[in-house]
Write a protein that binds this DNA or RNA. Structure first.
Length: 247
DNA sequence: GCGACAG
DNA sequence: ATCTTGTCGC
C-alpha cells in the first residue's frame, strides 16, 4: 500500500495535513518509471507497443463525486471506467484530494488494464505540502502520475503569465514561502499547450509531477499528450465521460 | 484585517 | 465543480 486509507469524514484538520506530509514523503519527484514524452506521444497519437496512458477527470452529481478514467494506447481509447462516491468533506483549497480522491481511486481500479501513467486533472507537486490530488493518487496506487491543473493553486511563476505566449512555451513555477520545499525549487510549469492567432489568448495549464516523474519530463508529457486542444487528450475524454455519467 | 484559493 | 444561449471567429 502506498498511502494511508482515505480518512473518515470526522477526521481532524491536523490529521489531514499529517496524511499529506506522509504522501509527500513517499512521493518521488524525479523520473523513475514514468513513460518518456515520446512514448506518451505514441499512446495518444498512434504507434506500436505504446504505454497505457490513463486520463482522469471528475464531475458532480448532487453530493456524489463521479470520476471517469479513460485509457489510451497505440493512439486509441482501449477502455473507460467510472466510479461514484459520496463526498463527505467540502471543497477546501489544498484538501481537494480528500473530497475527490476516493472516487478517483475507485475509477482507476475499476479498469482492467494496468496504467503505465496517470494524467490527472488537478495539481501534483504544485501544492502547499507538495501533495496535490495527482501526487496523492499516484502514491496511493503506486503508479507514475502527472497533474494538469487549469489554474495555479500556489507557487510563483518565474516570469509573468500576463500576455500571450506561443504553443510549446514552458514557464517554471517555483516554490515560495507557502510551499514545503526550499525557496526556488521548481515544482511545476505553466505550459502553453495551445494558442490561437485570434485576439483572444488561451491560458496555459499548470503541469506538475504527481509521482515517479520529474518536473521537466512532466511538462513535456503534458505537451505530448495534447491533440489540438488545451487539455491533454486522455483528460479531455475523461472530462466528457464524467459529464456523460452524470446525465 | 486583506488577499489568495486545484475542483 | 456547477448554474447556462447565443454568438463571434477560424
Amino acid at each position: 500500500m502506498g498511502a494511508p486509507a482515505w480518512p473518515d469524514a470526522d477526521a481532524d484538520h491536523e490529521d489531514l495535513l499529517a496524511i499529506q506530509h506522509r504522501v509527500a514523503e513517499r512521493a518521488v519527484f524525479e523520473d523513475a518509471g514514468a513513460p518518456t514524452p515520446t512514448a506518451v506521444e505514441r499512446a495518444v497519437h498512434g504507434g506500436r507497443n505504446s504505454p497505457v496512458v490513463v486520463g482522469v477527470d471528475q464531475a458532480f452529481d448532487g453530493d456524489d463525486a463521479v470520476s471517469a478514467a479513460v485509457a489510451m494506447a497505440d493512439g486509441r481509447v482501449i477502455e473507460r471506467a467510472t466510479a461514484e462516491r459520496e463526498t463527505t468533506i467540502p471543497y477546501i483549497p489544498g484538501l481537494l484530494s480528500f473530497r475527490e480522491g476516493p472516487a478517483v481511486e475507485a475509477a482507476i481500479e475499476a479498469l482492467t488494464v494496468e496504467p503505465d501513467l496517470l494524467l490527472i486533472d488537478g495539481s501534483g507537486r504544485i501544492h502547499y505540502r507538495q501533495a496535490g490530488l495527482a501526487t496523492h493518487i499516484g502514491v496511493a496506487v503506486e503508479t507514475p502520475a502527472v497533474g494538469v491543473a487549469k489554474a495555479l493553486l500556489c507557487g510563483r511563476p518565474r516570469e509573468s503569465l500576463a500576455g500571450r505566449r506561443p504553443a510549446g512555451v514552458q514557464i517554471p513555477i517555483e516554490a515560495d514561502d507557502e510551499v514545503t520545499a526550499p525557496e526556488g525549487t521548481i515544482v511545476g510549469h505553466a505550459v502553453q499547450t495551445r494558442q490561437f492567432d485570434s485576439p483572444r489568448a488561451i491560458n496555459p495549464v499548470f503541469v506538475s509531477p504527481g509521482h515517479r516523474v520529474g518536473h521537466r519530463r512532466a511538462a513535456r508529457i503534458g505537451l505530448a499528450a495534447c491533440d489540438g486542444y488545451k487539455l491533454p487528450e486522455p483528460i479531455r475524454l475523461a472530462d466528457h465521460a464524467a459529464g456523460r455519467a452524470t446525465e
